[in-house]
Amino acid sequence: MMQQTMARYTWGGDEFLFVEITEGMSLEANFISNSIANALELQQLAGIVDICPANASLLVRFDPDILDWQQLERAVRALEQEVRAATDKVLRTRIIEIPVWYNDPYTNETGARFREGYHQRPEGNDLDYAAEVNGLADAEEFIKRHHETPWLVSMVGFVAGLPFLYQLVEREQQLQVPKYLSPRTDTPALTVGYGGCFSCIYSVRGAGGYQMFGVAAAPIFDPAQRLDDFSDFMIFFKPGDIVKFKPIDEAEYRRIQTEVDAGTFRYRQTPIDFDLSAALADPNKYTLSLLEALNGI
């Protein structure tokens, strides 16, 4: 059942309303945050500047010269009531296949440069560490657990178009991995990262504190909008997207790189309706049906 306690409302200065759905991460909290965000977007309230749904919270930027802060809070609280009362908990979205070269030389080389003083476990790489803290046999088993079940894009942000992803499995099966002790000053672009219970894909090269497991083969941020998947917008991911990671080897990685360079690469994807109740009732069965949708194309 949905949590019956209401969200916590608080202010980030005079321009930001922050709505914490729940303190801890859950699929339900993320669904509520996204649903409020979508409903607020539809209201087209004058003075709303940005609506940013996050993992288990929502950040709304507003112009207090145009929109009274108390009026904004009343509007969002009313939407929260509606969203919690709704029986139809379906999100119109898409499922996308993201090819990843796991245990690749790029992230391994970068990881090796940030060991002493940065990492919990100087020996081995980040995958070895992640397998160990989750009680798995080895890196291979961790990789399998990482890609065999789909993920939900629970938030977009940090830097340009970076997706945070939450795995669609029951709480007991969630993999959890601590972040680096101190953030690295470098992360290769398209690194598949992991921190807490979240995966991410670093859209651009830069600083980062998540463990590094592999590298995605194709861009997710394309400011020049060269590829067809970016013809509408330079950023690929939206909150609510469903992702299936596909493990690839070096040869496949190189082949995709050639397609990206030629401007012909397209992500495999198909529209789906994500049904929260079905996903919560039997996650394993539900994710199989999602994968069938992707395999059907």
Partner: peptide, 21 residues
């Protein structure tokens, strides 16, 4: 610490940052 937040008491479940926060 809540689920998914990380172990340090300064950690939260990743959220949007207010500018100026």
């Amino acid at each position: 610490q809540p689920f998914g937040a990380g172990q340090d008491p300064s950690n939260i479940v990743d959220a949007g940052y207010a500018v100026g926060s």
